[in-house]
Design a binder for these strands. Structure first.
Length: 510
DNA sequence: GGTACGACTTAGAAGTCATGGA
DNA sequence: TCCATGACTTCTAAGTCGTACC
């Protein structure tokens, strides 16, 4: 009988799909009458079997895929544990970039003359190991040896090699959470704070120097003004043909600057347009003091587009001068100082203790953004920006509808309560009230998110947060305004700034 | 003073992962 | 549960700046 049934089934190929289809179309009866042996009971059994099969398939999938992922994860963890740490001064420290750079095509940023060159594979024979004499270091793979094993405790790197594109040295160093990097970071901000104490004096001096008899001093003073006011980088010379053509302050050329005695109702406007670090465009129109303007006109006299604007100046001269003004002062300290002081001022200006947490965070991001704009930290707008913005707007619209519906319900509940005057309807009013409150909070959050995202379209906040803003300012702000530090710094950032989180109280002033 | 080099910080993009809503 | 999305992590290029050497 069962054979017959099977054969019949085979013959007719009345599969589950068909059963299902028939059922959906209301043809169940039809089906039933056509296959007498295909009773409801049998069908249920089949259905059971089908589900079982599905479950089995799923299990197989899980058996294959989940362990695969787990295996990779475990393997990564093993590699991290074996190679990702070192011991320095008796402390186990995370290493930053412990994986060797694989071979491939060199891209470079901007219009790089070496774009597309082959980046060679690094071999054990290229590698220099730096460790203490008595330490255990990784052995070179069988049949190979390291280029050198040295014991230099004056430097912080663990491994180095020379790369084949520019012939420069690359290093493996410790993670930002390490003691050695943390102390250095702290020092950097302390130097910037020392600058704060004397910056007005330095400004007074460079203004004075704008009138110097000596060209080199005038150039130095105007360059320093740019570095201070516009947070430009120092601008070292670069070897032509080896790298993309980018400039900083001292290496600005005539072609990068235009002078407008008047523009858009402002006097003495300087228009700067040049490729900076990573070939990111710096474009700014800024009104300067008359004396600066006159000096710039002087520097431009009788020069061609390709000539240096500051022909009597380079970073070495500038930094020597700065060193005389303050121990440890260099051009980049101005960037750190101006970034951090801007954050502190903006936070003071934008936040109030009455704000709720999302509003406070929006203000923090805005303060952060002001710094990113100052430092010209840009990013390509995310590929999915338009779409995700649109999605967010849809969400906001929906939330608005929800809110007005909830308000209506509240009104109705209130009316009921007024007529009925019983406990139950009173309770209902409370519930509806809470719903309205909850939804309007959600709406506000979404709107804040939309504003934040729109304003952030082309601006990268990460770089300034990680490299320019004294973390103690943020920590103090969080403590003062009761914002959890996790809202500002993620796990990695908290590890990097552990020194600041530990030592800072709410009264810290940069 | 000029230059090459070495060590270290700063930079945006790409890759990966976690989460939350459909 | 699945997938889209954004957050986080990794990657490595590209700067700064001090020093050695001529």
């Amino acid at each position: 009988d069962s054979h017959k049934h099977k054969d019949k089934h085979k013959e007719r190929e009345h599969s589950h799909k068909e059963h299902k289809r028939d059922k959906e179309r209301g043809n169940w009866k039809n089906c039933h009458s056509e296959h007498k042996s295909c009773s409801e009971k049998k069908h249920r059994e089949k259905e059971k079997e089908r589900l079982k099969h599905k479950e089995k398939q799923k299990e197989e999938k899980v058996d294959l895929i989940v362990p695969y992922h787990r295996k990779i994860k475990e393997e990564n963890e093993r590699i991290l544990q074996e190679y990702g740490y070192c011991v320095m001064d008796n402390h186990r420290e995370r290493i930053g970039n412990f994986r060797i750079e694989p071979p491939g095509l060199f891209r470079g940023r901007g219009d790089h003359p070496k774009m597309g060159k082959l980046k060679r594979r690094i071999r054990p024979e290229d590698i220099i190991i730096n460790c203490s004499k008595d330490s255990v270091h990784p052995k070179a793979p069988p049949g190979t040896r390291w280029k050198e094993v040295r014991h230099d405790n004056k430097v912080t790197w663990l491994v180095s090699w020379t790369e084949n594109i520019q012939g420069s040295i690359k290093y493996i160093m410790l993670n930002p959470s390490s003691r050695i990097k943390g102390e250095k970071d702290w020092q950097k901000y302390e130097t910037a704070r020392r600058l704060k104490k004397i910056v007005e004096r330095i400004r007074a001096q460079y203004r004075e120097d704008w009138r110097s008899k000596e060209m080199r001093i005038r150039q130095r003073a105007v360059a320093l003004y740019f570095i201070d006011k516009l947070a430009l980088r120092a601008g070292n010379e670069k070897d032509e043909g080896e790298t993309a053509d980018t400039v900083g302050c001292c290496s600005l050329r005539v072609e990068h600057i235009r002078l407008h005695p008047q523009l858009d109702g402002q006097d003495y406007v300087v228009e700067l347009d040049f490729p900076g670090k990573d070939s990111i465009r710096y474009y700014n129109k800024v009104s300067v003091e008359k004396r600066v303007f006159k000096n710039l006109q002087l520097f431009l006299e009788n020069k061609q587009a390709k000539d240096d604007l500051f022909d009597r100046l380079n970073t070495s001269i500038l930094n020597k001068h700065l060193q005389e003004l303050m121990d440890g002062l260099t051009a980049k300290v101005f960037r750190t100082y101006n970034a951090s002081i801007t954050l502190q001022q903006q936070l003071k200006e934008l936040t109030s203790s009455d704000d709720n947490i999302p509003e406070k965070i929006l203000s923090y991001n805005r303060a952060n953004r002001a710094v990113a704009v100052l430092c010209n930290h840009q990013r390509a707008p995310p590929k999915t920006f338009e779409k995700s913005m649109h999605n967010l707007q849809t969400k906001i619209d929906e939330k608005k509808k929800q809110l007005s519906a909830a308000k209506k319900e509240l009104k109705a509940a209130k009316a009921d309560a007024k007529t009925l005057r019983d406990e139950k309807s009173k309770k209902a009013v409370e519930t509806k009230k809470k719903a309205v409150q909850r939804i309007s909070e959600q709406l506000m959050k979404l709107e804040v998110q939309a504003t934040d995202r729109e304003e952030n379209k082309q601006i990268a906040l990460g770089t300034s947060k990680l490299n320019y803003l004294d973390p103690r300012i943020s920590v103090a702000w969080c403590k003062k305004l009761g914002v959890p530090i996790e809202k500002i710094y993620n796990k990695t950032q908290r590890e990097k700034f552990a020194w600041a989180i530990d030592m800072t109280d709410e009264d810290f002033e940069f």
